[in-house]
């Protein structure tokens, strides 16, 4: 009887656990500040808001695949084996390479006579990884993508997404007549926007061999052809990043986002560049909070001109009724 009860108890526990996981999945906005930028820290087992730092859940259970197995039954349940596949490598990381150290399976060093042979094998192994022109294109493009993403400091999820977009573009023959670099930059730009962490075209262009105009054109083309339904970026998406570069406090950030929200409600952002609106909102917020930054400083970070900031700032201040004493 006791046994039975215990089993039941365990089941109930599991049920609760499952519900908890489900509940966690549904949390998309921070309950404290309403930001959608929530992140899972797997090392600490915490579910954190990136904007206000609220720990929504701690010591949560990793529902990922089980790596350990103690008997044959568990072995069968194990969901994956080997390194996870990744789209950022042209063969999805599925092929093998011959190691560079001249050691055999037992750790003994390989005789000099066989070394030359091994060297040749290695060389051919490497060459065989890239089997045809499409693969070669992918290999080159994805290494370029990795280089740019590293330079821009983009997280893995974005790179993975960009790689998927690029692969789709290759499949649909959209690369024809466009430069690989241009399409890579456009894919990266699109992936950033999909992830809600938009980079400006200027930022992308500084790390690319292609100019801003070409990236924009290519982006529009692949977005149309692949049917990427991307919302126009909101100025609010740029605020955290710009504020961080300007060393502004969270208060300013909050205030700037508030201003942008109000401006969007009053339809002041329609047809205005999002970076310009973001820059003006940050400028106003910095003055209101007594952490004044000059127009030039804000302009530099946002990649717009001071004139743009002045224009947007006048508009915002006037229409939203914000009194500013300089």
């Amino acid at each position: 009887m006791v046994e039975m009860e215990r089993v039941k108890e365990k089941e109930v526990e599991k049920e609760v656990e499952r519900k908890e996981i489900e509940r966690e999945e549904t949390i998309e906005l921070c309950p404290e500040c309403g930001s959608p930028r929530l992140i899972r820290d797997f090392r600490r087992g915490e579910f954190i808001c990136q904007d206000c730092g609220l720990v929504i859940e701690d010591t949560y259970i990793d529902s990922g695949p089980e790596w350990r197995a103690f008997d044959s039954e568990q072995k069968e349940k194990r969901s994956r084996v080997g390194a996870p596949i990744t789209y950022t490598i042209h063969d999805k990381g599925l092929s093998t390479i011959i190691d560079w150290s001249n050691k055999d399976y037992y750790g003994k060093s390989i005789s000099i006579r066989n070394r030359a042979q091994l060297f040749r094998l290695r060389k051919w192994q490497r060459r065989i990884r890239i089997s045809n022109a499409t693969e070669r294109n992918l290999a080159f493009a994805l290494s370029e993508l990795d280089r740019m993403a590293s330079a821009l400091g983009l997280p893995k999820a974005v790179r993975e997404n960009a790689a998927v977009i690029y692969r789709k573009a290759v499949e649909d023959n959209l690369i024809r007549g466009r430069s690989i670099e241009g399409v890579v930059a456009a894919a990266l730009y699109a992936a950033c926007r999909q992830a809600g962490v938009p980079r400006t075209l200027d930022e992308i262009a500084t790390y690319s061999r292609v100019d801003r105009k070409e990236i924009g054109r290519t982006y529009r083309f692949i977005a149309r052809e692949l049917g990427l339904k991307l919302m126009p970026t909101s100025p609010a998406d740029y605020v955290p990043r710009f504020c961080a570069s300007l060393n502004l406090s969270g208060d300013v950030q909050k205030k700037a986002i508030e201003i942008i929200k109000k401006a969007e409600e009053k339809e002041l952002t329609s047809g205005r560049g999002p970076t310009g609106v973001a820059a003006a909102a940050i400028y106003i917020a910095s003055i209101l909070s007594g952490e004044r930054r000059t127009q030039r400083e804000v302009a530099e970070v946002a990649g717009v001109t001071e004139v743009t900031i002045r224009n947007r700032y006048k508009e915002l201040a006037e229409k939203l009724g914000i009194e500013i004493i300089l």
Binding site: T200, L201, G216, R220, R224, G227, K229, L230, M231, P232, T233, T269, G271, R272, G273, P274, T275
Partner: peptide, 15 residues
Amino acid sequence: GLENIEYEPEQFPGL
């Protein structure tokens, strides 16, 4: 519908 239009205020103010 986002699939029918093109609106990139960063690149061009018009839709």
